[in-house]
Write a protein that binds this DNA or RNA. Structure first.
Length: 580
DNA sequence: GCCGTTTTCGGCCCGACTGTTTTCAGTCG
């Protein structure tokens, strides 16, 4: 059982315990434990296997959770979780997905009206039975009815990329209001999370009412969830996506930005630090407990400096390593899109892309890149019209011809995204791969093989002297396909040993490696490559999504091989080709 | 359930908004 699954079990435990009315701090302890395990950059199985280390040394993991983790790893199940699942119908858990319904209300509906499913909940509301309960009224009933359709669309998170496009549209709309003096996005969008569940907009306005009215008049708004007197408006756009507006004073802007950027875990940690120093941090500023004197809040720097820390980049704010790094003044200088010099994974119309080499090259130059690799699919990917040895060599002859034309403007590397075959081994002959400047190895078929088979295939590719990099190493498609079962620790050890690179694929649906794995790669000393996997010229602009992943992993430009000058990149991959 | 320069018990981040319970609980972020 991997870290993500273990974290899911603990989150589910927390949910079920909360429904059962257990002590909220106990519930929180399970959530904290889940979050710790989800954020680990190595598998808990590896820690368990190491006699010198203890799971209980991890923050938020005590003896109880360590023991339960051990049981989960060894048996794949947890007796207490099974019991809880028996005692509370899945339909009641599903009720938590209805906005406005929490554990207390859901459980009372279950106990007092014998409601055990979303359908029964809908029926009860339509029959007016819910409003009869103490503490429930007509409005609550209407809220539940409305919320039920949202619950069905729940889990609807936008990719960071789509969320960023929506955010820009809203920002444009808001800038059209003269009362809006300043605005910034906070929340998971600012932290560069791979998916975004809602948007948080901070605004400084000369006229709060005007700014709130403007916000509600955004054409895509479908519902107003709440509107406070002068601080907050919440709306939905499309079917269920929530956007919050917060009005703040200029001298509170930094405090609010810090507060609403989160993550929740990061903020809890920060405020605990403040508490230990006799300070209080909230969205309005930093205050001294003794006399309530306000010590700052106009900028985020003031907040962090108040507790003796340097400013922490939003992408690192997950309460993983950032406080430790900040305290030791060892925060990494995070990679930025401006640092990117090359893109080493893109397709052309020779396989399943839509543009010519020249069109891709021109688009790359327009983005300021210094080098690219053309990496079409190999023949195994017949659906994508993958290239065999002879078509590939033909493409390389074309690149040779283009090189003169692009001399001094762009280096075009002769590459290939070569499939790792189901039975192991590479899809193209070694003598052909030996002629390439850049070889990506990808696994597209046989993704349902056993963990051992998949791991062996990928390590086999890493051991092939012509392979430079494994692209999208876990195969996941966010919200659509689970990663294939692979021993990623073993892949990392092999990549480190054989001097190979691993890819962060910037495609918003892939983002593979994800942040935690990319951080592990860095720990192994493996350089990462951030590639767009572009299938058309516009896709080259997706680099930002991969940059987000890299920043969240704490990577610096030095850790990212396509930030290097091409000479350094060639030196790195050189020894391999020199051997032949 | 976790944790400890307030250390083995007694705390655990903080505030806004809504609906309904006229003083607050529940939910949310």
């Amino acid at each position: 059982m991997d870290n993500a699954k273990i974290a899911e079990c603990f989150d589910e435990m927390a949910e079920l315990l909360e429904l059962r009315g257990e002590n909220m701090f106990r519930v929180r302890a399970y959530r904290t434990g889940a979050s710790t395990i989800r954020g680990l950059d190595e598998s808990v199985a590896a820690i368990l296997a190491d006699p010198h280390r203890q799971l209980a040394d991890l923050p938020g993991i005590g003896e109880t959770l360590a023991q339960k983790t051990k049981v989960l790893v060894e048996t794949g199940t947890l007796p207490q979780l099974e019991e809880l699942r028996q005692s509370i119908p899945a339909g009641v858990v599903a009720m938590l997905g209805v906005p406005g319904l929490g554990a207390k209300k859901a459980m009372r509906l279950h106990q007092e009206l014998a409601i055990g499913s979303l359908q029964e909940l809908r029926d009860a509301c339509e029959q007016g039975r819910v409003r009869g309960l103490k503490g429930f009224g007509e409005k609550t009933e209407a809220m539940i009815l409305k919320g039920l359709s949202i619950a069905q669309a729940a889990g609807l998170r936008l990719s960071w990329y789509r969320a960023s496009l929506l955010a820009e549209k809203i920002a444009q709309h808001m800038r059209g209001c003269a009362a809006v003096k300043k605005l910034a996005w906070a929340g998971s969008l600012r932290r560069g999370k791979e998916t975004v569940g809602d948007l948080d907009l901070l605004v400084v306005a000369s006229d709060r009412d005007a700014a709130m009215d403007r916000f509600e008049s955004f054409p895509e708004v479908t519902q107003r969830i709440a509107r406070g007197e002068d601080k907050k408006v919440s709306v939905r756009v499309e079917r269920s996506f929530q956007v919050d507006l917060r009005l703040v004073e200029p001298d509170q802007f930094g405090a609010a930005l810090q507060y609403f950027t989160g993550s929740k875990e990061h903020n809890v940690h920060l405020r605990k630090l403040a508490q230990q120093q006799g300070l209080k941090i909230n969205e309005y500023g930093v205050f001294r407990e003794s006399d309530q004197a306000r010590l700052g809040g106009a900028t985020e720097e003031e907040i962090y400096h108040a507790v003796g820390l340097p400013w922490i980049p939003p992408e690192l704010r997950e309460d993983r390593h950032e406080f430790q790094w900040a305290a030791a003044d060892k925060l990494p200088r995070l990679v930025a899109v401006e640092n990117i010099r090359g893109d080493l994974h893109m397709h052309t119309s020779a396989s399943d892309g839509s543009a010519t080499i020249r069109e891709m090259a021109d688009a790359a130059i327009a983005l300021g890149l210094q080098y690219i690799a053309i990496t079409d699919h190999s023949k195994r990917v017949s659906m994508a019209h993958g290239l065999d040895e002879s078509r590939l060599r033909e493409q390389w002859r074309m690149i040779d011809q283009l090189r003169d034309e692009y001399e001094g403007r762009l280096v075009i590397l002769k590459g290939i995204e070569c499939d790792i075959l189901e039975e192991g081994g590479m899809d193209l002959a070694d003598d052909c791969l030996a002629e390439a400047d850049w070889v990506l190895a990808s696994l597209h078929y046989g993704q349902r093989q056993s963990r051992q088979q998949i791991t062996d295939r990928i390590i086999g590719a890493i051991e092939n002297p012509h392979v430079d990099c494994v692209s999208h190493p876990t195969g996941r498609l966010i919200d659509r396909r689970e990663p294939y079962d692979v021993d990623i620790d073993a892949v990392m050890r092999a990549a480190a040993k054989h001097h190979k690179l691993l890819e962060i694929n910037a495609n918003p649906a892939r983002l593979d490696l994800h942040d935690v794995h990319a951080a592990a790669a860095k720990r192994h000393g493996i350089p990462l490559v951030i590639n767009t996997d572009a299938h058309r010229p516009d896709d080259l602009g997706l680099m930002m999504c991969g940059i987000n992943q890299a920043r969240r992993a704490g990577l610096s430009p030095d850790d990212v091989a396509n930030c290097w000058p091409i000479t350094k990149l060639r030196e790195w991959i050189g020894p391999k080709t020199a051997a032949h």
